[in-house]
C-alpha cells in the first residue's frame, strides 16, 4: 500500500516499467512501422486514440479491487450510460446535459452495486454479475436493439484537438492517483481493503468507503463509454461487450491483485500501456491479428513467472518471526 516502501515491491513495480520500455525498444528496432525517430504517427496514434480507453477500463476495475471486490458490470455501465447520454443529447440538444446524465447513470449503477455489496452483504461477484445482466438488458430494452447515429457535433467537440482523450484519461488518472495515495480517504480505502473489520473498529465507515469505490468505478465506466461514443460518432447498446475481460487482463498484467489493498492506480496505467503497446507492436511485427489473444495469454503467464523470479532474487530479507 501507499507508503510501504520496501525494495521488493519497488523492484517488482519497476520491473513492469522496464518490460514496457523493453517492448517499446524491441518493437521499434525490429520494425519500421511501429516507431522511428521520423515516424511518430503510430505511437502517437496509440497513445492518443487507444491507450486512454484501455487505461480507464483498467482503472475502473482496479478501484473495486482495492477494497477486495470486483466489478463485472463495467460492460453494462459503458453501454448503458453512453447510450442514455446519446439519447439525452438527441432529445434535449444539449451536449452538457447528455454528459451529466451519462455520468449520473454510471454513478447510480455504482451506487447500487455498492449498496448491494456493502450494506446487504451480497458477494461482489454475484452483485456485479447480476447488475451486468440488468444493465446490458436495460440498454437493449431502451435502445430496442438499435443504434443511434449522427453525433458529429459531439465527436467534433472531442476531436477538435487530438489529445482530448489522452488528456481526459490523464486527468482522471491523476485525480484517482492523488485521491487514493495521498489523502486520508485513500488510506481509509486501503484500510478497508486490508481488513474491513479492523477498519470499522478504527472508526472508518467501511460501508461508505466501499460504496464510494464502486461509484468511482461507475463514474469511470460512464466516462469511458461516452468517450467511445465521441470516438465512433454513434451510440451502440452493445458497446461494452467483452470489455470486462479486457479490463481484468490489463490491470492484472499491471500487477494488481484481487486480494484487498494490494492494487494501485499505477497498475492500471502500466497494465493499460503494456496491453496497448503489445497489441499494436505484434501487428507490426507481423503477428496476425487473430493470434493476439493467444499472445496476451502467454504474456500473462510470462508475467507470473517473471514475478516469481524476482521474488526469488530478493531472498535477503530476514523474516524474523518472533514467537
Amino acid at each position: 500500500m501507499a507508503d510501504r516502501f520496501d525494495v521488493r515491491s519497488f523492484l517488482i513495480k519497476g520491473a513492469r516499467v522496464i518490460v514496457l520500455i523493453l517492448l517499446f525498444v524491441v518493437f521499434s528496432a525490429f520494425t519500421d512501422s511501429f516507431f522511428g525517430l521520423n515516424n511518430w504517427t503510430n505511437v502517437g496514434n496509440i497513445l492518443l486514440q487507444e491507450a486512454p480507453f484501455y487505461i480507464l477500463l483498467a482503472l475502473g476495475m482496479t478501484i473495486p479491487m482495492i477494497v477486495g471486490g470486483i466489478d463485472l458490470s463495467i460492460e453494462a455501465n459503458i453501454s448503458l450510460s453512453s447510450f442514455i447520454c446519446a439519447m439525452t443529447i438527441q432529445a434535449v440538444g444539449n451536449t452538457g446535459a447528455g454528459i451529466l446524465t451519462g455520468l449520473a447513470v454510471g454513478l447510480l449503477m455504482g451506487f447500487i452495486n455498492g449498496v448491494l455489496i456493502a450494506r446487504t452483504g451480497l458477494p461482489p461477484f454475484v452483485a456485479t454479475y447480476s447488475m451486468n445482466w440488468i444493465g446490458k438488458g436495460s440498454a437493449l430494452v431502451i435502445s430496442k436493439g438499435g443504434q443511434l447515429n449522427g453525433f458529429e457535433n459531439f465527436r467534433n467537440l472531442f476531436n477538435s484537438w487530438e489529445g482530448t482523450y489522452l488528456l481526459m484519461a490523464g486527468i482522471i488518472l491523476v485525480m484517482a492517483w492523488f485521491l487514493y495515495t495521498k489523502t486520508a480517504f485513500g488510506r481509509e480505502t486501503y484500510s478497508v481493503g486490508c481488513n474491513a473489520v479492523a477498519a470499522r473498529i478504527s472508526g472508518i465507515n467501511s460501508t461508505k468507503i466501499k460504496i464510494l469505490a464502486y461509484m468511482a468505478s461507475g463514474f469511470i465506466g460512464a466516462m469511458t463509454g461516452m468517450m467511445y461514443v465521441a470516438k465512433l460518432g454513434a451510440a451502440d447498446p452493445t458497446l461494452g461487450n467483452g470489455f470486462t475481460i479486457k479490463a481484468i487482463a490489463a490491470t492484472l498484467i499491471g500487477g494488481a491483485s484481487f486480494r484487498g489493498a494490494k492494487s494501485r492506480v499505477s497498475n492500471a496505467l502500466i497494465g493499460g500501456l503494456i496491453v496497448v503497446i503489445l497489441n499494436n507492436g505484434l501487428i507490426h511485427i507481423g503477428v496476425p491479428g487473430v493470434w493476439q489473444d493467444f499472445a496476451q495469454g502467454l504474456i500473462i503467464i510470462a508475467a507470473v513467472l517473471m514475478e516469481r523470479m524476482l521474488e526469488k532474487l530478493q531472498t535477503a530479507e530476514p523474516k524474523v518471526r518472533l514467537q
Binding site: V290, D293, G297, I300
Partner: peptide, 23 residues
C-alpha cells in the same frame, strides 16, 4: 502461482489458440 493470473492466462491462451487456428 496465483490462481487468478494462471487461470486467466490459460483462458486467454485457450480463446487465442482457437481464434488463431481457425483464423
Amino acid at each position: 502461482f496465483n490462481y487468478w493470473l494462471v487461470s486467466f492466462g490459460s483462458m486467454s491462451m485457450g480463446f487465442g489458440l482457437a481464434k488463431g487456428i481457425t483464423n
